[in-house]
Amino acid sequence: MELVVSLAIGVLTGSGVWLLLRSRTFQVIIGLSLLSYAVNLFIFSTGGLRTGAAAILEKGQEGSLAQFADPLPQALVLTAIVIGFATTALLLVVLLAARGLTGTDHVDGRERDR
């Protein structure tokens, strides 16, 4: 399973980086989304891949890693998802404003001189 997830991370990263280096703003946004998927999955996977581990404690129970999934990467990723959403939204609005001001959707605000 580890192999599948790491390959998934690799594919997401590769596609994200490729798009990040493109010249159109929309490509960059999509690239960042893909890259954040990859990074979230990576952070999540550092806690180990546990199928069927309980996520919720019993009342009054002191949990241990033997029975439960690692909550720390999950908490980190949860924060990262929300922050990622906020930055994507901000980037979108900035790019739209830039497009309105410059008339182009090139990342530099002007078409490349040929």
Binding site: E2, L3, V5, S6, L7, I9, G10, V11, L12, T13, G14, S15, V17, W18, L21, A38, L41, F42, S45, T46, G48, L49
Partner: peptide, 17 residues
Amino acid sequence: LAVAAGSGLAALSYAVM
């Protein structure tokens, strides 16, 4: 660059997992 970054992170995450 994209392939390098992708395979790098894939290898890294495999090693971590």
